[in-house]
Amino acid sequence: RNLTILSLPEDVLFHILKWLSVEDILAVRAVHSQLKDLVDNHASVWACASFQE
């Protein structure tokens, strides 16, 4: 069985995303439609995003 980041529970993905910069979140968003939906549909992803580079 192949395990990917998409195999992780949504709460784990949120925990990972909250540590990323805006640039990295946008890069993750571009990788897969499921990740794009996760980022686009949950404001909590952006609430913790680091807007300082």
Results as ranks from 00 to 15, higher is better:
Asn41Glu: 13
Ile5Lys: 03
Phe14Cys: 11
Ser44Lys: 12
Asp37Gln: 14
Ser21Gln: 07
Asp24Ala: 05
Val39Trp: 04
Trp46Phe: 08
Ala27Phe: 00
Val45Lys: 15
Asp24Lys: 01
Arg1Val: 07
Asn41Arg: 15
Ile16Thr: 02
Arg1Ala: 00
Pro9Arg: 04
Ala49Tyr: 09
Ala49Asn: 12
Ile5Glu: 04
Asp40Pro: 02
Leu38Thr: 11
Leu38Ser: 09
Ser7Lys: 12
Gln52Arg: 13
Arg1Phe: 04
His15Lys: 15
Glu10Ala: 10
Gln52His: 12
Ala49Leu: 08
Trp19Thr: 10
Ser33Tyr: 02
Cys48Asn: 15
Lys36Leu: 05
Leu38Glu: 01
Thr4Trp: 04
Ala30His: 08
Thr4Phe: 01
Asn2Ala: 06
Val22Ile: 14
Trp46Met: 10
His42Glu: 02
Lys36Tyr: 01
Val12Tyr: 01
Ile25Phe: 03
Ser50Arg: 13
Ile16Cys: 09
Ser50Cys: 11
Asp11Glu: 11
Leu35His: 01
His42Ser: 08
Ser33Phe: 02
Val45Leu: 13
Ser33Glu: 04
Asn2Lys: 11
Ile5Trp: 05
His15Gln: 08
Val22Met: 11
Ala47Val: 06
Leu35Gly: 03
Leu6Asn: 04
Gln52Glu: 08
Val45His: 15
Leu26Cys: 10
Lys36Ser: 02
Leu26Arg: 11
Ile16Asn: 00
Ala30Phe: 05
Leu3His: 09
Ile25Arg: 06
Glu10Arg: 13
Ser21Tyr: 05
Asp40Trp: 00
Ala27Asn: 13
Ile25Val: 09
Ile16Trp: 02
Asp24Phe: 00
Leu6Ile: 04
Leu38Lys: 09
Leu38Ala: 13
Arg1Ile: 14
Lys18Leu: 06
His15Val: 06
Trp19Arg: 11
Val12Asp: 02
Asp11Lys: 15
Ala47Met: 12
Ser21Cys: 09
His32Thr: 06
Leu8Ala: 06
Leu35Thr: 04
Trp19Tyr: 15
Cys48Leu: 14
Leu6Trp: 04
Ser50Pro: 12
Leu3Tyr: 14
Asn2His: 13
Ser33Met: 03
Asp37Ile: 15
Trp46His: 08
Asn2Met: 10
Leu13Ser: 04
Ser50His: 09
Glu23Asp: 14
Thr4Glu: 05
Leu8Pro: 04
Ser50Val: 05
Leu6Gly: 01
Glu53His: 01
Val22Arg: 11
Leu8Cys: 00
Ser50Tyr: 08
Ser50Asp: 14
Ser33Thr: 10
Arg1Gln: 07
Val22Gln: 10
Ile5Phe: 10
Leu8Ser: 05
Ser44Asp: 15
Cys48Gln: 10
Arg29Glu: 01
Leu17Gln: 02
Ala49Val: 05
Gln34Cys: 10
